[in-house]
Design a binder for these strands. Sequence first.
DNA 1: TAAGTATAGTGTACATGCAACACTATGTCA
DNA 2: TGACATAGTGTTGCATGTACACTATACTTA
Lengths: 229, 229
Amino acid sequence: MSYTYEYSRPALTVDCVVFGLDQDDLKVLLIQRGLEPFAGQWALPGGFVRIDESPEASARRELQEETGVRDVFLEQLYTFGEPSRDPREHVISIAHYALVNLDDHEIRAATDARQAGWFAIDDVPTLAFDHGTILKMAHDRLCGKVRYQPIGFELLPDKFALRQLQNLYEKVLDRQIDKRNFRKKILSMGILQELDEVETDVSHRAARLYRFDKGKYNDMFKNGFNFEI
Amino acid sequence: MSYTYEYSRPALTVDCVVFGLDQDDLKVLLIQRGLEPFAGQWALPGGFVRIDESPEASARRELQEETGVRDVFLEQLYTFGEPSRDPREHVISIAHYALVNLDDHEIRAATDARQAGWFAIDDVPTLAFDHGTILKMAHDRLCGKVRYQPIGFELLPDKFALRQLQNLYEKVLDRQIDKRNFRKKILSMGILQELDEVETDVSHRAARLYRFDKGKYNDMFKNGFNFEI
DNA sequence: TAAGTATAGTGTACATGCAACACTATGTCA
DNA sequence: TGACATAGTGTTGCATGTACACTATACTTA
């Protein structure tokens, strides 16, 4: 089977920058390429856009096929199309970024036996193609976006302690935050639901657990409000 | 001449939302389609991405070909790729937005005699394809961006009075701004160069002219600062 | 079971920035 | 020269952000 067009068409791909958070670091999900070009190098998960498939659907499909990650927060980032970015031919890539919490999403290598793995954002190897540039833009976008939209909660489990939430902002924004000011601010937003539960299995005083209250958030969103941390 | 690929490829286009400002309104540049589908309807200027051409270069080329507009501020907006957005086939469009000042850029219709014209942002006709959606996203982006980056100056002539700048923010953000607070804030940023010139041909006291000082802005940008109006 | 330890949880004082508000100055025009 | 149209200018109150240190609680271990 083959397809013929009157004019030459660039190839179209999607790539995904998947962020995850654990105790220690903000991490990004990479796969090791099995094929040339850049065989053996680490790269962002991604692949070709199929006909009659929206870019977002392509990104979700590729993400699941290559890493097993599904049902996550995912947004379009930017479209990269410098003619030189792929040595084979002109390939235009619609980059996306996704946020997952590491507890719920166990990754698995793709069926074709390439490796997949989490890398601390400050300790990423040289990436194939222009994926280093894409990763940097995704990280910048994440830094900017957590300040005025509550997308950070996607990186946490359903129930979390305030310390975990603060840790998230500290890792993403890469700076220390005062505990009292943080709690004052985040609680005054009224988007957290206080639960009748506390942490378990900790060897010290257990912290109260909270849940992100999407309903309240949507109410506030209509008016517009400041999420600055 | 024809081109054959192993897999089916979506077509790839660029579209441009060009904003301009005059005394009265924020305006957007539209063209009237000459061909089906949507022949006769108004649409955003745009066209196909050529092979070995970056998306931004495509956008600039199409903009000049169809409207005569060139050498303007232009940035990528978002990539629209719902399979149903074009009735002919799957067409993925990389949308851009551009800012021009209406004095410097006289528009002209494209060579194939289609019309081009400016429309007040609140008075835009029904557009072809999903261009209404694209326009709305571009307007939202503009509103957001003028608050923390000095891109608004692209909409003004080189030399301008503070009243013109305030008018710009009022039109873009669609709200009234207090004159004293605005002048205090914008002057305190230190990104304006006060000129030894005043307006001419006005039938009242002439206002002092200013120029955007890109050098000072770049200095400040390194530290990061608040451009909120 | 008491002391140690590790983290949870809490309030105040100061500085900064934003919002509200009205009058004088200067040039043109009739 | 008087009417007019727009330029240009400061202060005050309020809200928000920032800096900062101690007590409370649960578990661990000697």
